[in-house]
């Protein structure tokens, strides 16, 4: 309780549908995490800077536009440039199966497509964080 997991939820790129991101934010909150929601149309640099200022443990990206193969590596790189290579990166949205392994090779710890239960995401984050509460 004294050290909740902090998660940044961001929507990079140009798609304007943030229902999914909000559902995830709510589920993580209900799991006792502190969720910083940044809103729409974030650039990789904006996401990395917000992750740095908020000192989050996890960054969750919601991407429905199909631009994940372009956006994700730039975000991972921006995070690493900001000395945030230890921050876990999760991607949710419409991701073709063949892209999942590629994304994971880029340093994404988890990819969650349509139909994922929010509980799976909570468990994934908890297992990443190990001993940390929340």
């Amino acid at each position: 309780m004294s050290e909740p997991i902090r998660v940044l939820i961001a929507k990079p790129g140009l798609d304007g549908h943030d229902r999914g991101a909000k559902v995830i934010a709510r589920a993580l909150r209900d799991a006792g995490m502190e969720v910083i929601y940044t809103g729409l149309r974030q650039t990789p640099e904006m996401i990395a800077e917000a992750a740095l200022q908020e000192d989050v443990d996890v960054v969750g990206l919601s991407i429905l536009s199909g631009a994940h193969m372009a956006l994700v590596p730039r975000i991972r790189e921006a995070l690493n440039t900001s000395d945030l290579s230890d921050v876990a990166l999760l991607v949710g949205g419409i991701i073709p199966d063949e892209d999942i392994a590629v994304l994971k090779a880029m340093g994404v710890s988890g990819v969650f497509g349509p139909g994922t239960s929010t509980e799976d995401i909570v468990l994934h984050i908890r297992s990443l964080m190990g001993a940390k509460a929340g």
Binding site: M1, P4, A25, R26, L28, R29, D30, A31, G32, M33, E34, V35, I36, Y37, T38, G39, M46, A50, G134
Partner: peptide
Amino acid sequence: TGGAILGDRIRMR
């Protein structure tokens, strides 16, 4: 739940 949604950054874009 002890959790929170911190949304002020949305308007500080």
